[in-house]
Design a protein around this nucleic acid. Structure first.
Length: 302
DNA sequence: GCCCAGGGAATCG
DNA sequence: CGATTCCATGGG
């Protein structure tokens, strides 16, 4: 990794790092693409402006020392990604996903933010999850001034203590998950070190611990452990992962349940690959419909 | 209008 | 234990 200060901005020259893939892979929700390959991302109360460039990522309004102290670990940049890739089981689909998802890094986010975000995520669509979380932040998060305008931080626990189930349902449109949110917020209020304690636990302990929270089952607990604590054994199993694992089984090469040495990274690679494959199919279908409409309109005009 | 989604909890056998 | 059912919402 090579860090080059360019005025107010910092160029992070490094292999296997794409900000686009890192943000779009479903591990985090508070990002938006402002130009091609250029993203605004809010994590906790930190606003970031970043761009994919050749050979690395450009961080706007970033000091080298701040980056070293706060963001190298957050973006998992010290990890040897070649070792991660070598640790995957041998499979055609996994190889495809590795080629496709290379550059994705698993973030080490705030456990509190990840916990509430993935409680909202359950049985929900990603665009709608993002909408719910944006409402949550705009209504209950503190305003933060940034070089490009006003943003909102993720709400603090104390701010959310003031919100009742009706509020979560009516303002954030979280549906039946309103009680999960109020229940979890209450439990965290009564046990202020509840999330902090997980840092000292191993994967299994941490999972059992987190599943005490209302709205946190196996899958959500795995998301919290992976995205909030970098527990690489976690392998969040949703409908997309079940499909991917089924087709890997069908190849016949991989032993059942073998997820290699980095289950967390394997899971994110496969998830991102599956989702983008589907998205591309949809885009192609829409493009075909547009072309067809153009053709019909053209024939009419003759 | 129907199907589905980064599921969890309650209930039942 | 495992299997089933219900839950609220809105994008496709």
């Amino acid at each position: 990794m090579n860090l080059i200060q360019q005025g107010k901005n910092l160029f992070c020259q490094i292999d296997n790092f794409s900000i686009q893939k890192t943000l779009k892979c479903g591990q985090t929700f508070r990002w938006r693409e402002v130009e091609k390959n250029k993203f605004i991302y809010i994590t906790g109360n930190c606003p970031l402006l970043m761009e994919d460039v050749e050979d690395g990522v450009l961080f706007y309004h970033m000091e080298k020392n701040t980056f070293l102290r706060q963001w190298v670990d957050f973006f998992d940049l010290t990890r040897d990604m070649d070792a991660v890739h070598r640790g995957f089981p041998t499979s055609e689909l996994i190889q495809k996903a590795t080629d496709f998802s290379r550059g994705l890094r698993i973030l080490k986010q705030s456990p509190f933010e990840v916990t509430l975000s993935f409680i909202i995520s359950s049985n929900n669509h990603i665009p709608r999850i993002q909408g719910c979380i944006e409402e949550l932040c705009e209504n209950f998060g503190e305003k933060i001034e940034t070089p490009w305008g006003e943003e909102h931080a993720f709400p603090s626990l104390s701010a959310l203590q003031e919100v009742d189930a009706e509020g979560f349902r009516n303002i954030c449109r979280v549906g039946y998950r309103d009680r999960y949110l109020t229940g979890t917020i209450q439990l965290l209020s009564n046990h202020p070190n509840f999330l902090e304690e997980v840092y000292a636990m191993d994967y299994k302990e941490g999972k059992k611990h987190l599943m005490i929270l209302p709205g946190v089952g196996e899958k959500v607990a795995d998301c919290i452990l992976l995205f909030g604590y970098h527990k690489m054994e976690a392998f969040p199993m949703d409908i997309w992962m079940k499909r991917a694992m089924a087709s890997i089984q069908k190849e016949g090469q991989v032993e059942k349940q073998d997820k290699g040495k980095f289950p967390g990274y394997l899971q994110q690679y496969l998830f991102y690959h599956e989702k983008e494959k589907k998205m591309n199919k949809r885009c192609q279908r829409n493009l075909k419909i547009i072309e067809e409409n153009e053709r019909i309109r053209y024939e009419f005009s003759l």
